[in-house]
Design a protein around this nucleic acid. Structure first.
Lengths: 105, 105
DNA sequence: ACGTAATACATCGTATCACGAAGTATTCTA
DNA sequence: TAGAATACTTCGTGATACGATGTATTACGT
């Protein structure tokens, strides 16, 4: 999929992946994989960014003697998803413009 | 509108704006404005990029004693629009993932 | 006549960001 | 016992939207 098209979707996909249940890096990648491909370096960059923006919080926890970083969505994170839904109307209007292609005569 | 979300749409919007009829910078901005905002610096950067990629060709023409650069879509440009339509299925599947948010239990 | 907006195009620098490459370390499995 | 899977991290790079700024002409209001 076109990298530019992905840009506006990745953040929201990550937030969606932790929306119902706290999750961790490796699992997030596997969960979103059916919908969108994401490399590890991309994911961890995004997680860092979302943390700095206050859209999620992090908690380190031990699991089978291995450390895992669990990510938890914040209210601002949930808001971000809602904003995305709002913006989708604009996106669809652009899509309509493109498929019709009747910009001028 | 979110700048990241715009990224995958701008190129295709510009191509759509010249699809039916050759057009020029200033007019393109006004034509796509109802759907998506685009600054001049952005537009001319895009036009340059699309030209270098062979998605459009340029022809300079005089209009009222002023030079205008008319942009004409190529076959590759039309293909680009078709590819976009194909990719839209993936985009919609991602959108569904986000609005449902039922990634795990 | 004069200033301001509109038309029309161009360049530069900056900040953001996805990703490949490479690295560290543990656990599971053939 | 080697390799795959799990789990996280850092670095460098290329792509790119945009504000700021500049140039030049035409149209319009007063």
């Amino acid at each position: 999929m076109d990298i530019q098209l992905k840009r506006g979707l990745l953040d929201v996909c990550v937030l969606t992946a932790i929306k119902n249940e706290d999750s961790y890096g490796y699992k997030i990648i596997k969960d979103v994989k059916p919908y969108i491909e994401m490399s590890e370096s991309t994911l961890y960059t995004i997680l860092k960014r979302l943390e700095l923006s206050g859209l999620l919080t992090v908690r380190t926890s031990e699991h089978d003697g291995r450390l895992r970083k669990y990510y938890h969505i914040t209210k601002a994170g949930l808001m971000r998803i809602e904003d995305f839904k709002e913006e989708w109307r604009e996106v669809m209007s652009i899509y309509q413009f493109v498929i019709k292609g009747d910009n001028n005569g």
